[in-house]
Amino acid sequence: MIAREPALPVDPRLPGEPTALEVGCTRLWLGRRGVRVWLPTRLLALRIGARGFELRRRPEQAVVAGVLAAFFPVLTAGTDLPGRGAALAVLFASVQVLRWRRMQRRERLAERLTAAGTPPSLRVAARQVGWWYLSAVAVTFVGGAVLCAAMFLTAPRFGDHWYPLSVDIALSTIALAVGAGATALVLGKTLRSPVIAEDEASRLIDEALRAEDAHRYASCAAYALFAVPVLMMAWEPPALLEWAAWAYLAVAAALELTGWLLLRRRYRRLPPGFYGR
């Protein structure tokens, strides 16, 4: 298979062939960045088409996600069980990892189209991903661990529930650790994955996808909301601890949002190059 050949969606059942939907998604992605092509190259169609449109490709997943998001608070409102926020955090981490693993299967096909280059240096890869995002990761998990430890030290033994508050705090701490593990799995692979490119245009696409993968499959702001027990438990924490929790949530969300906006601005327009026909 010739990597630079336009990505004709011949038969989706053939291994290594971009599907019609992947070609369409790639055209949309390139079009939003100022590149108009009818048929993108196979390499770009495999890589771009596999990202960001999983729910559209599988509408039943969108339905399940919508139902869970709408009815989870209703279903758990009458149950006095610990760790409801922690359960949402673990569910979010699981979905993120599953989406990432599905994308990686297409990424391995793209690697076989070209001689995969060496990974960029860690500093270069970190700069591509963005220091704002990496700062958000550090604040989310280091700050979350500090807040969980403070909760263990300040929370009373029992609150308004039949179970000790320490159980809720422990479940939230475990959920935060699960989120940290999921983020480390995706981010580690993102930073150390080889460059998959055949020319300067696809090399720039590789940089953009590397940066977007961190935000798309390793978003960390959700863990700051659901996995930190200060904001998810029915008790009155000390004023300083509550203030610190809200400040922590605001800083983590602001850092990640800033990183995403700067990323969109950086790759808002792609330079001239061979992206297809």
Rank of each mutant, 00 (worst) to 15 (best):
A208Y: 14
R265I: 03
D206Y: 11
G16I: 07
A247K: 03
P272C: 01
P40V: 05
Y223C: 00
G66A: 13
R157G: 09
L249Q: 04
P229R: 07
T114Q: 10
R123E: 13
P271F: 09
G16A: 09
A177R: 00
A208E: 14
P164I: 08
R56M: 04
D213K: 03
R277H: 14
M232I: 06
P59R: 08
E236V: 15
L225V: 13
E54M: 03
W260C: 03
R106H: 15
H215K: 00
F158M: 13
A69G: 09
R84W: 08
A116M: 12
W235K: 10
R4Q: 13
P119W: 05
R108V: 12
S219H: 05
L191K: 00
R210F: 08
L30V: 08
L134I: 01
R58G: 02
R102C: 00
A208H: 13
R269C: 02
L43F: 09
R99D: 06
P271C: 14
L14R: 13
L249Y: 01
L241P: 04
L46Y: 09
L43S: 15
L249R: 00
P82V: 12
H215D: 05
L98V: 14
F274S: 13
F152S: 08
A150C: 12
P119L: 09
G117R: 01
L44F: 08
V10C: 07
L46H: 07
C220A: 12
A87I: 04
W260Q: 04
E212P: 02
R33T: 15
F72N: 01
P82A: 12
E5Q: 14
R210M: 12
L68E: 02
I174S: 08
R112V: 01
R32H: 10
A138H: 01
A254N: 02
F226M: 05
P73K: 10
V178A: 12
A222F: 10
W246P: 02
R106K: 13
V186D: 04
A86V: 05
M232W: 11
P12F: 05
P12T: 12
P237T: 10
F53A: 06
A180Y: 04
P238C: 07
L261H: 04
R56I: 09
F152T: 10
E236M: 10
R57V: 06
W132C: 04
Y248Q: 00
Q104L: 15
L46S: 11
T26W: 10
L122H: 10
R33V: 05
L165Q: 02
R216W: 03
R108W: 12
R266G: 11
R105H: 13
R266E: 11
A145G: 14
